[in-house]
Design a protein around this nucleic acid. Structure first.
Length: 437
RNA sequence: GGAGAGAUGGCAGAGCGGUUGAAUGCACUGGUCUUGAAAACCAGCGGGUGUUAAUAGCGCCUCGUGAGUUCGAAUCUCACUCUCUCCGCCA
């Protein structure tokens, strides 16, 4: 959630612009209309006016109320005061109803406004304008005709879309034998690395969450169509472990020495992919269900930039250990997600399409999610009021896409797959994946 | 699914119609003492929001959430959510 107070303040930020002017510019950069912002400012002003009316009336009632018991003690007549107070109360009740609808509107509007970009975010309209800031390894080349992962997997008898189609429909998959094992190996390898090398705490968490959690991390109220909902219950399948992990500390005040908190978890992720009917219909790229290992951090505001860089390196380390060529892209203003203030995508090389595809997204949310989910910490020191933490998260990594990247980048001419060295131990010593017997 | 108990400040835990925004303890902050620390002692100490230059004052709200009774509710009524105990069922 954006900081409404800051928007209303006339104090100048950097380069003599107010926060409001800077935020308007930000909305333009993100290709958001500023209608909601304008509405918000108007509605919030009426809210404040009504509120102060109501409050002074309440103050009056609060002052008069004790008179009653005083007078009663003295045996004086109180019926005048009683009727006046009852009248005031009834007036206030009406006003309260109006205020309530206005407050709901303010809330909805403020929840539908995106985060403010970090100054380092480049201007751009789409994916095309993202800035490649890093490259690892040249694209894999083959001296034979490379196959795509669907062909490879199906030829090996280890990937079956007919079976999954039969039981669940499109955008699901069945992995068998050593490919299923490879998936498990990746999960293990990723989590072990985060826990043992990068000092994350491993978490096992629910895969279904309530709407308040999704509001906290900003999937709701705007992006409901991307989610799978349980009928007749306030429960949704998680689209990413970011949701349960970040909300573990919702509505709480942490102490400063708890920070930074680093969580890593493996969960399946469920996405309805409502907005992408025609895209990536084939293969493992875009599924309704996929596995992912996610990293989430709660940090002090001063260190969030640094932690964001570090978290991105944690994700990159996995790709480097696996020997997969990738690029790091700094997302432009038009491509960055709703709640992020800065985001790096890691894109892995896919020989079959000759392109880099997203395999991880590492974001700094600033205090955006913390405001929504009320995640604060109490700084050490005199008169320290609770402050919002900054939240970060990143995939480390998406399992399905890593799996397909391995299939494609590690394929042999005969269609078998070499197992990346770091995974051999996790595969019970298996060095090559061959056709299922 | 059945039966009961409960939800109070960062935590623990009193209060059960009118100076209760809330005793007490812990934690935390400042101070005294000390070479330093600990202990002891003294003092301070919930959060949100409005007004404001203000983290100063003052107002309003806040004792799980939402409604209700009342001049007045943490305290009474109803609904909901969650937690715990017992029984049943189940991995």
């Amino acid at each position: 959630m954006i900081d409404i107070k800051a928007l209303e303040s006339s104090q100048e930020l950097q380069s003599k612009k107010t926060y409001l002017e800077t935020y308007r510019e930000n909305l333009r950069m993100r290709s958001f209309s500023s209608d909601d912002l304008d509405k918000l400012l108007v509605v919030n002003q009426t809210r404040k006016d009504l509120l102060s009316h109501l409050e002074s009336s309440k103050a009056k009632r609060n002052q008069m109320s004790p008179l009653i018991s005083e007078k009663k003690k003295k045996g004086e007549d109180v019926s005048d005061i009683l009727s006046e107070l009852a009248k005031l109360r009834d007036d206030d009740k009406e006003k309260e109803q109006v205020l309530k609808t206005i407050e709901a509107e303010v809330r909805l509007l403020s929840l539908s406004l995106p985060n403010m970009n970090d100054p380092s975010v480049p201007f751009g309209k789409s994916e095309e304008d993202n800035k490649i800031v890093k490259e690892f390894m040249p694209p894999t080349e083959f001296n034979f005709k490379a196959k795509d992962h669907v062909e490879l997997g199906e030829d090996l008898g280890l990937l079956d879309f007919e079976m999954s189609g039969k039981i669940s429909g499109a955008r699901f998959s069945v992995l068998r034998g050593s490919l299923a094992q490879l998936e498990r190996a990746l999960i293990q390898f990723f989590l072990s690395t985060h826990v043992n090398k990068n000092s994350y705490e491993e978490v096992s968490c629910p895969f279904l969450v309530g709407s308040s959690a999704l509001e906290g991390t900003s999937q709701l109220p705007k992006f409901a169509e991307d989610l799978f909902k349980i009928e007749d219950k306030d429960l949704f399948l998680i689209p990413t472990a970011e949701v349960p992990l970040t909300n573990l500390y919702s509505q709480s005040v942490l102490s400063e020495d708890q920070l930074p908190i680093r969580f890593a978890a493996h969960t399946p992720c469920f996405r309805s992919e409502a907005g992408s009917y025609g895209r990536d219909t084939k293969g493992l790229i875009r599924q309704h269900q996929f596995h992912k290992v996610e990293m989430v951090q709660f940090v002090r505001p001063e260190e969030s930039d640094q932690c964001h860089e570090q978290l991105t390196l944690h994700a990159e380390g996995l790709l480097e250990d696996l020997g997969l060529p990738y690029q790091r892209a700094l997302l432009c203003s038009g491509d960055i997600s709703f709640g992020a203030q800065k985001c790096y995508d890691l894109n892995v090389w896919l020989p079959s399409s000759g392109t880099y595809r997203e395999i991880s997204s590492c974001s700094n949310f600033g205090d955006f999610q913390a405001r929504r989910a009320m995640i604060r910490y109490r700084p050490k020191g005199e008169k320290a009021k609770p402050r919002f933490v900054h939240t970060l998260n990143g995939s480390g990594l998406a399992i399905g896409r890593t799996l397909l990247a391995i299939l494609e980048n590690y394929q042999n001419e005969d269609g078998s797959i070499r197992v990346p060295d770091v995974l051999v131990n996790y595969m019970g010593g298996l060095k090559t994946i061959t056709k299922r017997m």
